[in-house]
Structure formats: structure tokens, C-alpha cells
Design a binder for these strands. Structure first.
Lengths: 138, 138
DNA sequence: GATTATAGTTAGAGAAATCTAACTATATTT
DNA sequence: AAATATAGTTAGATTTCTCTAACTATAATC
């Protein structure tokens, strides 16, 4: 257990570094840390409305409205009116906004390459199976 | 490769969620997202001085000075004068500031528990060995 | 159908985060 | 030892982030 925790820490630190590096590359100087956080949260929640997004971020609705208005203006997200409820609308990432996820994808791809460089084919297959088993549903 | 990337994405997303949850728990409402980022970066750099911290964050020195002054006031970090260079000082996390790292530790421990719940003893041992091999130095 | 609840908006104010320009003190170079 | 470079600081201004209070429009409940 102790050892497993250690090695998980290393893995997550390594992935963290790779993501940081990817973010630096992807010229996200156009966005503040806070704004990036909004994009990530919108992506994680999967097209939330204002109420859901505010709840997740522990911020008030006027605060979040101001932020998303700015992100819309900068073409990172857009609004889609709800069919069911005419009061409400959901936020979607634009193509530009989805770049934020590419930083994750990039990091994971690099990690995969590191792994393939360190393990032989059998071991890679084994690792894949084990991780898959961990995330299998039931 | 494709499959490995997928499963790494799941793993890192899962650890991410656990860290978010841990942060919520640890009543870091006292800190803004930005301030948490300062603490994490100070921890990662290992007691940087103002110049190093500014460079890493891509921010000007007056900006970073204002931020660290506030973190010192709130007792999350402290200044240690450099022996060699009398102009300079390094930032260290206080006991309170180190709590930021506990959120990571917490997440990794929980992840380890999930893994132990999903795999049998042999498989856990195997996974540990594989991950260790990945992070072995040469 | 009237009342209450929910989703989002607007206006205005204050705190947080950032910058540039100008400065002091110590180190390094010439 | 004079000139230049580096580490950090100060002052002042601007932008970003956040809040509360009051509002509109639609939905749900009674």
C-alpha cells in the first residue's frame, strides 16, 4: 500500500508536469488561470448551465455570468438555449475552447510514450489490462 | 498505444477528481485559486527566491512580491535570507502551507484504496512493479 | 389563475491581481 | 574604484474577479 501510494504520487506528478509544459506551449497567455479553470470545469461537467457551473465553482451566478460572457466574447465557449426550459441555456466549448483539453491529451500521449520506452511489449499489455480492470464499471 | 492513452486519461482524470474533492474538504476557502497556485509552485520549485518564482509563473516581480507578502501575512509561507547573496531571500512553506500538499497525498491514498478494491493481491504487486519500473532512473 | 420557485440578468461596489516606472542595496565586471 | 548588472522594493494605475441587492421571464405548485 505504502509503495503503491508512492508510485502513484510519482505518476500523477509526472503527468502534472507534462500538462504544465503542454499549457505553456499552447500559448494560453490569452487566458488567465481563472479563465482556464472555467473552461476545464465546463468541459468536465459537459455543457452545464449557469446554475450548475456556479454551484460547482462555489461562486455566485452574477460572478460566473460575467466570466462566461467574457469567454463567449473571446470565442472559447458559446450558449445553446435549452429545449425544455426556455429560461435556461447551456455552455459548450468552441473548437478554440476545446484546445484546453488538448493539453491533457498531449500529456497523456507523452506519458504513454515514456511508458512504451521503459517497458517491453508484454509489460505494456499487462499494464493496460490492469488499469482497465481498475476502471471497469461494476 | 491508443488504448494505453485512453486508460491513462481515465487515471489522471480520476486522480484529478480526488484532488479537487480533497481541496474542497481542506477548507481552502481561505485561499483563492491564484494563491493556491503560488503555494503549489513554491512547493514544486523547492524554496525559490522571488526572481525564480516570477520566472516560473511568467509574472513580474512586483506582482509576485504583492502575492507572497500576502501569503506571508497569512502564515502560509515565510522568508529565509540567503547566506551567499545578501540581496536575496527564499520562500519556504510553513506547516500550514504544507497542507496544500496533503491534498495530493490524500488523493493518492484514495486512489490506492480504489486499486486495492479492484485488483487482487498478485495484481496489485504486479502493477506496483510495473509503475516502479517506469520511474526507475536510467 | 395566483403564488411561489427557479434561471438568468443588471447595476454598482470592493477586493484581488496585474502592470510600468522609478528606486535602493548588494554583486559582478572592467 | 567605477560602471554595470542583479535582487528586491515602492508607488500608482488598470484590469480582473468577486460580491450583494434588485430585477425579468419562465416554470411549477397550490
Amino acid at each position: 500500500m505504502e509503495k503503491l501510494v508512492d508510485v502513484l504520487a510519482k505518476l500523477s506528478r509526472e503527468i502534472g508536469h507534462l500538462e504544465e509544459a503542454a499549457k505553456d506551449q499552447f500559448d494560453f497567455k490569452e487566458l488567465t488561470l481563472t479563465q482556464m479553470n472555467y473552461l476545464e470545469t465546463i468541459s468536465q461537467l459537459g455543457n452545464p448551465n449557469l446554475t450548475e457551473l456556479s454551484a460547482e465553482l462555489h461562486l455566485t451566478k452574477p460572478t460566473v455570468k460575467a466570466a462566461v460572457d467574457k469567454l463567449i466574447e473571446k470565442d472559447f465557449i458559446y450558449r445553446v438555449k435549452s429545449d425544455g426550459d426556455r429560461r435556461s441555456a447551456h455552455f459548450h466549448l468552441t473548437v478554440k475552447g476545446k484546445l484546453i483539453n488538448h493539453t491533457h491529451d498531449f500529456a497523456h500521449k507523452q506519458m504513454a510514450e515514456i511508458i512504451i520506452g521503459k517497458l517491453d511489449e508484454t509489460e505494456v499489455g499487462l499494464l493496460g489490462m490492469l488499469l482497465e480492470k481498475i476502471f471497469r464499471n461494476p
